[in-house]
């Protein structure tokens, strides 16, 4: 029976208010081609063209509705609309709504944790790498991996610091070292003031 499968999430979408893609991921059970064990019960569109159509009509349907949860073309959709984007999580009709709601909340809350100035399109695009990690750590191939937002946020690493460029290059002579130190000192002092 499909409802006992761990593949409970069929898609995660981040769309802007016009329905353009910011992030989209449609999940299909892996190794689908020789799959005799799991039947893919997702009835989401498979081709890019149909998916985009689906997304556009979904945005149209949910825009300014403020209803959090609905059934759309025989999918259970949980969503939250922000100023200029909407986060969607789509599952099958048979899935427990609260479980999906928790998976959704996990993504939403951990995004809130890592994006210091809140969820909006610009922030998402600037921290796209971390957004990718957050979603990947929450859902793997449609399996809900984790629902605790702090755990998820702690697993999404920040981009590495700019290592080699920042180290002080002694070849450039003492003067530049002095200049660097001066600058730094000035900065500190200003901050202190």
């Amino acid at each position: 029976m499909s409802q006992l499968s761990l593949y409970s999430v069929h898609a995660v979408l981040l769309l802007d208010s016009q329905g353009n893609r910011i992030y989209t991921k449609y999940y299909n059970p892996p190794h689908d081609e020789n799959n005799t064990i799991f039947t893919n019960d997702s009835n989401l569109p498979k081709t890019l063209k149909k998916q985009i159509e689906f997304e556009k009509s979904l945005v149209k349907k949910t825009h300014k509705q403020d209803s959090e949860i609905l059934i759309f073309e025989n999918n259970l959709v949980i969503y939250k609309e922000y100023l200029d984007l909407t986060i969607y999580l789509i599952g099958s009709l048979d899935e427990n709504e609260i479980i999906l709601q928790q998976a959704f909340a996990a993504i939403r809350d951990s995004l809130d944790l890592i994006l210091e100035s809140g969820i909006d399109k610009k922030n998402i695009q600037e921290h796209y790498d971390m957004v990718l990690l957050i979603i990947d750590e929450t859902i793997d191939n449609g399996i809900i991996l984790e629902t605790d937002s702090a755990t998820i946020a702690s697993r999404a690493t920040k981009p590495p610091a700019n290592e080699p460029q920042l180290t002080l290059d002694l070849d450039k002579g003492l003067m530049s070292a002095w200049g660097f130190a001066k600058n730094k000192l000035q900065e500190r002092l200003q901050q202190g003031l």
Partner: peptide, 19 residues
Amino acid sequence: NTEFYPNSTFITQYHALGL
């Protein structure tokens, strides 16, 4: 890791049960 305090939800039980 001082920024976040992961809290186990024991979700591993879910995955194991599913398997």
